[in-house]
Design a protein around this nucleic acid. Structure first.
Lengths: 178, 178
DNA sequence: TGTACATCAGTGAACGCGCGTTCACTGATGTAC
DNA sequence: TGTACATCAGTGAACGCGCGTTCACTGATGTAC
């Protein structure tokens, strides 16, 4: 038996899940609160029971999206596996379930501090896991940057063959076999 | 003596210049036509004499921004010089005059085909200049991607020391001395 | 256990506001003769 | 060269429309006794 409190938490989680996907697919500014609520199976009038504002929701949605990436600190995904999934046609073609930095990085960096901090925190935690020596960190940072930049170029490029060539170039650069 | 036709072309150029800067600084959706026209020294009512729609202006502004990058095909900037300028605190802190891919890549890739093609064309032309062999192209593509990804992470990261570390890591990765 | 009342998640309608677009107007430039 | 008319870049005001937000209301859940 689910209590009223639990049901509310489930609704809240459904809203965040829907927002996290829609924002990455279409951009924060191009998704209305009404669309998010609809995707979560509700009407938009219920929104303020869960969030103080759209900005508040954006923060939670970014946190969710950021936390989906790279496994947990307890069980990190090996880099090769991570990169092979990251630089793939599937990831390129499905931003809604993909990397939040490649999907929303620039617009979040221009936005309010409140939401920028969410991604800044993720970057800080991620880099902290990269290693202790400056060399380890530097190498891991630049590999990560290569993944992000490659995906962004691949999503823009036309025709498909060029986009595929970009992904292949990225895979080579981070040490994956073809 | 400037003719009326020349004056109009100058106005048009001023609008595109202002838009190109403002869009990169704050995002296409967060800059109104009125703001662009104001920055160009006019009121917004004159806008339709120059552009069929905001989308039309966005296309021109992206083309302008893309063409500013990397020198001309006739006199390309050497990679080391390009990268040293690209991965700098100045570029990180002034997106309005910087790389259009790092500033607007993701949102343009989600947008209408009309504007996406502008950046896709630039990517195609740029990669064509990278060389003839697949190896040359692949290496140049991945270096370019590293620049873009590094700048995006550096613009998001906090505190400043971490952002600087990210830039330094990118510089090392593309072969620049510290 | 039952009853009466309180709470509040979610509904549906309405509100301002900002933005892209449209348009009548003006006055300087350009053209025809 | 001069004059009368046409053009049209730019102005300023107004228009719809979509969006974030607000709010009275409802009815199921929760609480008090």
């Amino acid at each position: 038996m689910t209590t009223r409190r639990e049901q509310k938490q489930e609704s809240r989680a459904a809203i965040i899940t829907a927002a996290s996907k829609l924002f990455r697919e279409r951009g924060v500014d191009n998704v209305s609160v009404a669309e998010v609520m609809d995707a979560a199976g509700m009407t938009h009038g219920g929104f303020p029971r869960h969030f103080a504002s759209k900005l508040d929701l954006v923060g939670e949605a970014l946190r969710r999206a950021a936390d989906e990436t790279g496994g947990s600190a307890a069980s990190p995904v090996p880099f090769e596996e991570f990169a092979a999934t990251y630089l793939s046609a599937a990831h390129r073609d499905h931003p809604g379930t993909g990397c939040v930095f490649a999907a929303l990085g620039p617009e979040v960096s221009r936005g309010p501090a409140e939401t920028r901090h969410v991604l800044a925190d993720k970057i800080e935690r991620q880099i902290a896991e990269f290693g202790d020596t400056p060399q380890q960190r530097a190498e891991a940072i630049s590999r990560w940057a290569t993944l992000i930049g490659t995906l962004i170029l691949a999503r823009l490029a036309e025709p498909d063959a060029l986009s595929d060539e970009i992904i292949a170039a990225g895979r080579r650069a981070v040490g994956l076999a073809d």
